[in-house]
Amino acid sequence: MKRAWWKGLVVPAALIVLAELAMRVQGSTSMSLAAPSDIVAAFFAILFDGSLLLATRDTLVSAGIGLAAGGFIGLALGILFGLVKPLDRLMEVTIEAIRPIPSVAILPIAMLVFGFGYRMEIAIVAFSCLWPVMIMTRSAMAGIEPRLLEVSRALRLSTWDRVHKIVLPAALPRIMVAFRLAASIALVVAVTVEIAANPLGLGYGILVAQQALQPAVMLAYLVWIGIVGYLLNAALSLMQQRLFGRAGRVEAAS
């Protein structure tokens, strides 16, 4: 790994140099493209005037709270449906009917209910994070080694002990994967809502830059969103490894 870490950077670096050359040689005045050096300059400009950090905060707060709320509801429902099979069957049709609704499609309703601002965005993010977490939690619970449940019966563990000493630790690695997936969905949905309607955050930043005919600023936002997404995923990966390193490894091995 160590000797070749730079090899992966060859292609992107070459592309950046090529783009820079192409833009300079052509003397482009494009409204959708900008030279890499201009993008970097624009990036530092919006970084230093504070607008980038403010937008990042707004987006991350909405995505984070939405993820937490949707994830919590999804987790609770997933555990409930995993434990109580009759309830699972009772709710199956209802859930399968609501789940496929694209999250952005509830935007008009959310706007009516909450108006513009954080609450509307949080609600939509929560709605879209709820389903993957619920479904993966439910299937993680169904995938628990039946022998372990038998052991918990043989030992006469209480329901609470069974859930928090056997069921949750056994399902946790897969629940964690669900949260990572939901986190990337949260960011996508938050930015989408901002571009489509909500006047705050990184999505709104892109929109404003586009309308102001500032392609370099727009692309700087775009690159930054990519970096934020990458860091978010890396942070969650690290957290997963730290918290459930052993259980995670066992899951991967089996």
Binding site: E145, R147, L148, E150, V151, A154, I166, P169, A170, F244, R246, A247, V250
Partner: peptide, 13 residues
């Protein structure tokens, strides 16, 4: 009860 499949009957974590 001692089960045959010890690997499945123990908590790996």
């Amino acid at each position: 009860i001692v089960f045959q499949d010890y690997a499945k009957a123990l908590l790996p974590w």
